[in-house]
Design a binder for these strands. Structure first.
Lengths: 211, 211
DNA sequence: CATGGTAGGTTACTGATGGTAAGCAATCCA
DNA sequence: TGGATTGCTTACCATCAGTAACCTACCATG
């Protein structure tokens, strides 16, 4: 979509970069990291392999770039949805729904990351944990924004650990969802909210007053 | 440990299998899936490559076998710990502590699975989700055992989804722990318990009475 | 308008590594 | 003692990430 006409011969660097990223996204989604070959990407782009290496350095860096972009898009959508609500619980709910809706759209790309044939490769985990971290940071930030307090030095690791754990729960629930697509995003969000909200509220209170 | 003397020449099939599995476990833990080569495994076992392929079929199947064994050992330890308590909350706590203690012992093998250079490979995710599923099943089983009730047909998917989500939270928390090893397993367990117990209790009540 | 530098690109290769075909030899059993 | 079975080896192939060396369209400048 971004680049209408492939195989246009000589093209400015930025354009070629964008085109390669777009095609790489597709290819990784279709085949997974392991089975996607640089030769095929080169063929699809109508370009020779060294061009790709000149732009991205290695297959892993190319993959990392693709994943990071997706992760950022996800974080943006969640953050935006959260900011449209004011009540704490409603904020979390809105963020959750945005999260699951995003996955619904990007399903194929997502599955490549966390499930399927390639997930055994350590290279995946690095990027996955980066996304998780991003969600966790976002959550901490928004919690602070909402409650107006921040945990003291002692409470901080605990908060960090718990938000990461929650991000992991979302991630894992997404995989379950992949096998039960009939459940609507809102219901998923409500299930998870009912599960973690009581504990989360208590945690927030506990960490805020311990300072 | 299992097989004292390697390079013994001709050896019965079952013995060779056990030896190869043991060495493969070590090798994967050292290098990760991607960087571990079948040639090296063959060299270490003092055997030629086709022997390995005769026993396990492919690198991926060999890896899957290793991971599955670890997953089973983990589930066994958790189940055993849980069964030594009777109060529901104490059961969950005991299981959690057992879970984290196991990871502490098997840290290297664990990290290979969920972090590090190879986790980008889809092949990993399959096995990881198998472990998660196992923990989830265990949890459902133990919850039923404890409360004496099982959810109706409608409530079942929700319960399944929530236990998987919780398993994901444990998994993700383990990765955080890897960077904060100073936190004792008991504290991790308590943090997580405080977070999910209220919601879990409520969920259990809700699903039991809806039948 | 010639001209030289640079950005964009190509051909042709290497080195690892997963995987296999074909065959050989130790051991067991009749 | 001899033949079948089981355990194992040699020698190879195909694929794929990554690279060295080289080429050429295009642009700014004297």
């Amino acid at each position: 979509m971004l680049v209408a006409n492939y195989r246009t011969g000589r093209v400015p660097r930025a354009v070629r970069s964008a085109q390669l990223l777009e095609l790489a996204d597709q290819l990784f989604a279709e085949r997974g990291f392991h089975a996607a070959s640089m030769d095929e990407l080169a063929r699809r782009a109508g370009v020779s392999k060294p061009v790709i290496y000149d732009h991205f350095g290695s297959k892993e860096q190319l993959f990392a770039t693709c994943v990071r972009r997706t992760g950022e898009a996800l974080a943006d959508r969640v953050a935006k949805a959260v900011r449209e609500e004011s009540d704490p619980r409603e904020r979390l709910r809105a963020g959750s729904i945005a999260y699951f809706r995003f996955l619904q759209d990007q399903l194929r790309a997502w599955i490549v990351l966390f499930d399927g044939e390639d997930a055994r490769d350590t290279r995946f985990a690095t990027e996955a944990s980066r996304i998780r971290r991003r969600q966790s940071d976002l959550m901490i930030h928004l919690m602070a924004e909402t409650s107006g307090t921040t945990p003291d030095h002692e409470g901080r690791p605990r908060l960090e650990a718990m938000t990461l754990a929650i991000a992991g729960a979302y991630e894992s629930l997404s995989l379950w969802w992949h096998e039960h697509p009939e459940v609507p995003p809102e219901e998923l969000a409500d299930w998870l909210l009912d599960l973690i909200w009581p504990g989360l509220e208590q945690l927030n209170a506990q960490l805020a007053t311990s300072s």
